[in-house]
């Protein structure tokens, strides 16, 4: 078993795609690094923390991008964002079976904050344009830094999200909320609280993540294969249905103080036991109870 959580972005791509099929665009040898970091006397990476390219998944052509959390928390700068936008636009030309986004990001890179924010906005528009053109975008989220900030919005713009329990998904990270609003609002060092608020199991129970897998690259691969035939649907009917689901969530859970209250309201008998369960046992325990 290969831990997805522990692997680097390059290793994740190698483990996810069919062996030996990955071809990188603008590889490190092209040295398209961030000039803005160097200007602030901060080390830059040859790939600006994102690997983009093409390969095969179960024999089918896909485009894929992987963010490296070990470099600046996977944050989006000008080059990083532009590489992802270019890949999404390429997908409109090439029409692969899907685009895979191996997300791991704290959001906008502060050293180039304006370029990063605009870059995230361009990623959002490019994802929506690609889905409108009928190519599905599948998100994999199980890295050490989670998926936050603008990339948290991007992830929810896509067709499907695969998470492990270790994966985290949100907008403002627990540390940001604690720093701004105080430890009473969100204690970022309370790992159990963080995991049940933004972790994969809660996201799966709310219906935000489509698959919850073990922290195993092979499990992520299989889940991505199973989602390859997803058909993008941005019709009025589909968005009206999503609107009703999101409205229902506010009505049903809007007064809940904690994920445990939500899980309880979903009819799960012993919600406090859920964080302890392995992925298989967890899926069995919550079958038919997801929002």
């Amino acid at each position: 078993m290969n831990s997805y959580y522990e692997a680097s972005a390059r290793e994740r791509l190698r483990l996810l795609l069919d062996p030996g099929t990955f071809h990188e665009f603008l590889p490190p040898s092209e040295r398209v690094a961030s000039p803005h970091l160097l200007q602030l006397d901060t080390p830059a990476a040859f790939d600006d923390g994102i690997i983009v390219g093409k390969g095969l998944l179960d024999g089918r052509a896909v485009l894929a991008a992987a963010q490296e959390g070990g470099f600046m928390g996977g944050a989006v700068g000008e080059v990083h964002g532009a590489k992802l936008v270019g890949l999404l636009e390429r997908a409109r030309d090439e029409r692969p079976a899907a685009v895979l986004l191996l997300v791991e990001s704290g959001g906008v890179r502060l050293h180039e904050a304006n370029a990063g924010l605009i870059g995230v906005s361009e990623i959002m528009r490019a994802v929506l344009a690609l889905r409108s053109a009928g190519v599905p975008v599948i998100v994999l989220d199980g890295g050490q830094f989670g998926c936050f900030g603008g990339m948290g919005i991007v992830a929810r713009l896509c067709d499907a999200i695969v998470m492990s329990e270790e994966g985290r998904l949100g907008l403002s990270g627990p540390e940001v909320i604690e720093t701004t609003c105080g430890v009473e609002e969100f204690d970022s060092r309370d790992r159990a609280l963080v995991w049940r608020t933004v972790g994969g199991k809660h996201r799966y129970l709310l219906g935000e993540a489509d698959a919850l897998v073990a922290d195993d690259a092979a499990a992520f691969r299989q889940a991505a294969i199973d989602l390859l035939d997803t058909k993008p649907d941005l019709s009025l009917e589909a968005l009206t249905a999503e609107h009703e689901r999101l409205g229902g969530r506010l009505e049903r859970f809007g007064a809940c103080r904690d994920a445990l209250d939500i899980w309880s309201a979903l009819g799960i008998a012993a919600p406090e036991k859920l964080p302890l369960l392995e992925a298989d046992a967890f899926r069995a325990a919550v079958a038919g109870k997801r929002a």
Binding site: S8, R10, P27, S29, A44, A45, D47, G49, F71
Partner: peptide
Amino acid sequence: PAIVGVVG
């Protein structure tokens, strides 16, 4: 070319 490691 080959690349290893992370700028962290």
